[in-house]
Design a binder for these strands. Structure first.
Lengths: 244, 244
DNA sequence: CGATGGTGATGAATGGTATTTATTAGGACA
DNA sequence: TGTCCTAATAAATACCATTCATCACCATCG
């Protein structure tokens, strides 16, 4: 056995899968602790027990490493949620379930959620990425719930399912930003109830006979509102506000 | 006059305000074009007609420069919106106005909006910053609208005003992310209507008083009153009282 | 059993960029 | 007109992601 010779460099050979998972585990740690920009490749390499250059054998660059780490997390999450969801019935309960599980994920992994929101999603190549597809599948469950609810007569037929998706996920994100910055805390169950109720009241079909007068006045109100908007807001391009 | 001597360096002395505004204008350009990370101080200095070091005389670092640029934009925006808002009456119209103007800002300045969402807001020192205060004032208008609406009996008493704020601004943000990434377009007026309707249906008090006609007529009256106000019959500040 | 080629792994460069610093020029003021 | 103060400069520094020339381990073959 050769003595610990300073001139001989030590090499530790491992199967690629093992190396990759070591690096990803270390990267996850560092990204979570430091955020993307302050995470150092040196630090990741150190914790993974490799040298900086080795990371570039498996990942094209720092960003790809980030994407892979978040993808891994997201996929795991989806697997866990999927079959549970299948057991939930009724539009209110289904919406509540989706809101609740999403809130729980954020509450459990704030740093990773934040990386997803702040670093991944705004990237110009996000659409077209695997994470985009995963996220689409994730959020489309809500779209489907709304569609089914409309078909079943539970929800207002004129609501846009995709707008409901943005309403719900946008609300959750906006509500949790302070927490994601490390300020304060929230209770997922409580907040899930509040959001679901608020949204659902906007969706629930009011079983009123809906007299003809009703709709006529509603149209009148809309017309005047537009008129006001056009008159009060922008002299620059008044026409567009009057689509008719 | 000294000849253009390569050994003598040219110095262009300017009043500080002028230098600062030059630098900020150049920085705005570059940040808008390239985004925060890809914006180079060198580039900014070049366009501002100064040398890199000079920027650090007026701004502590790149991030402070960014914050100042966004602050400036935001303040300007607030000034423009403020008095217009004062003229709008009725909770539906007020919400619609807020949604519409916000959508318009995003539509007009996507890059700056994006910097605000992606770079500024997630920073750990955001709360406590001037921009936080500005943004709070901006979004609190909606909170006030909801509070007044509840007090006036227009909106469900059990709704949380701050949750409505998150619902509305979160929805807008989520909806516009694709546009902010440079994919596709949206129509502010149309989207404002859709969002306002969706949210308002979740807020509007549904229990009809005994006679449907009664409330229908009341709404008609409200609508015409608004129209009068908008037309300039009752101009300066009819809003704060929120009649009725 | 020894040589050898392929490749995982290394750590020292490289390059790009924010930030700092020593030095200079212009103007205000005496 | 001389002197000091400070804006402005340009070169230097520091920090990192990324690249690259080289090395050491293993399998395979002679």
């Amino acid at each position: 056995m050769p003595p610990r010779n300073a001139l001989k460099r030590q090499v530790n050979r491992l199967p690629p899968e093992r190396r990759i998972s070591d690096i990803m585990a270390a990267a996850k740690e560092v990204f979570v602790e430091k955020g993307y920009n302050d995470a150092l490749i040196t630090d990741i390499a150190l914790r993974a027990g490799v040298v900086e250059g080795s990371i570039y054998r498996f990942f094209a660059n720092k960003r790809e490493l980030l994407v892979k780490v978040v993808e891994h997390w997201f996929e795991e999450m989806l697997r866990d949620d999927a079959e549970q969801f299948a057991a939930v019935c009724g539009s209110w309960n289904q919406i509540r379930f989706i809101v609740y599980t999403h809130l729980t994920s954020i509450h459990r992994d704030p740093a990773l959620s934040r990386l997803m929101f702040q670093e991944i999603r705004p990237a110009p190549d996000y659409r077209g990425s695997h994470l985009f597809e995963l996220n689409r599948a994730y959020t489309n469950r809500l779209v489907d719930v709304v569609k089914v609810g409309i078909a079943a007569g539970d929800l207002r037929p004129e609501t846009s399912p995709s707008l409901v998706r943005d309403l719900v996920f946008g609300c959750i994100e906006h509500r949790t930003w302070a927490f994601l910055r490390g300020e304060g805390d929230f209770d997922p169950a409580e907040l899930a109830d509040a959001i679901t109720n608020l949204v659902h009241h906007g969706l629930a079909l009011d079983d009123e006979p809906a007299s003809p007068i009703e709709s006529v006045v509603a149209r009148l109100e809309t017309a005047t509102a537009r008129l006001e908007a056009a008159a009060g807001i922008a002299p620059t391009k008044p026409s567009s506000a009057l689509p008719r």
